[in-house]
Design a binder for these strands. Structure first.
Length: 297
DNA sequence: CATACTCGTCAACTTACCTCA
DNA sequence: TCTGAGGTAAGTTGACGAGTA
């Protein structure tokens, strides 16, 4: 059914790689190019003379349906649209795969081979590029959605892990504080009183366990007793807090652990999630998910 | 050299037609 | 047979670059 003149490999190559050949051989171009001997192409009048055309594509177009009157008329703009034949489309597709842009020379060559007007070829390429772009966008969307879903899953698992760690920090903090209270009990009351006036301009040091936000940040200030005015910040002698008691080795260990936890966790969280926020796209997270990036301590 | 004009091409959008479930 | 949806060829528009007077 296919005319080997058009569809055999060598001929296809002549069309598809014409541009390359153009660069190296004008003779090849001449042989491919419009000549008087070409029965299927006569420049701008090619559509008028198709009755004599021997292109394999063209006879399928019309003779089935409309006879010779429409055979010519099918290319008049007033006529109804006609689909390209599968062979024509296949040929154009192969050409598109090679190069999706259409140089004028190639356009004319394809038009000649397919028995179409150069304008039809140009339009086909324009529409094909548009379809290609649409499909590409769909693919891109799918891939982005996949990435988003994966990131979301990661985020969710990190969030859960983070919640667990926060609970652990809170428990350890409370444990630490209750131990401090036990230590302070034997102290005479008048030792603490002179420091009361300072509390007026200093935030309370004892963290409120009921306030989630104060848990970590206040715990930080509790232990930064080496600051210059730490004496003013501390309601009790800081030396008592960090008093080294060789007899209570396990407690010391516990204290160190608590301290390191208190100091390090907020940092870790900040490092983990701060880099999510500067992303201008917010990684595509929905607004409701973005709200949880600001941890309520 | 700068400017204005023409021409060809492109992307984006729209319309009209065809096919098929 | 009718109909609506989807695909596709072709039209329209505006932007852009190259060539030219």
């Amino acid at each position: 059914m296919e005319d080997p003149r058009v569809c055999d490999g060598s001929n296809m190559n002549n069309v598809l790689f014409k541009n390359e050949k153009l660069l190296c051989s004008s003779e090849v171009l001449d042989s491919l190019w419009i000549t008087d001997s070409s029965p299927s192409f006569h420049g701008s009048t090619s559509m008028v003379n198709f009755e004599n055309a021997e292109s394999s594509f063209f006879p399928q177009i019309d003779k089935k349906e409309n006879g010779n009157d429409d055979y010519d008329g099918c290319f008049h703009q007033s006529e109804k649209k006609r689909r390209l034949t599968p062979d024509q489309v296949q040929f154009l597709e192969k050409s598109f795969e090679v190069e999706n842009k259409l140089e004028p020379e190639r356009k004319l060559q394809l038009a000649k081979e397919l028995g179409l007007q150069p304008r039809q070829v140009a339009i086909w390429f324009q529409n094909r590029r548009a379809r290609y772009k649409t499909k590409n966008l769909e693919k891109e969307y799918d891939s982005l959605k996949q990435s988003y879903d994966k990131l979301k899953a990661d985020y969710d698992s990190h969030f859960i892990e983070n919640e667990k760690l926060k609970i652990e920090v809170r428990m350890l903090t409370e444990k630490l504080l209750s131990r401090d209270k036990v230590k302070r009990k034997p102290e005479p009351l008048d030792n603490a009183e002179p420091k009361k006036p300072n509390l007026g301009h200093v935030s309370p040091i004892i963290p409120d366990a009921s306030s989630a936000k104060s848990d970590v940040s206040d715990s930080d200030s509790l232990h930064y007793t080496d600051r210059p005015n730490s004496a003013l910040l501390e309601p009790v002698d800081s030396s008592q807090v960090f008093e080294h008691d060789p007899s209570d080795f396990s407690q010391d260990e516990d204290d160190s652990l608590s301290r390191s936890l208190l100091l390090s966790f907020p940092k870790v969280e900040a490092e983990c999630y701060d880099d999510l926020q500067p992303n201008p796209c917010n990684l595509g997270f929905p607004v409701e998910a973005q709200g949880t990036w600001f941890w309520p301590y």
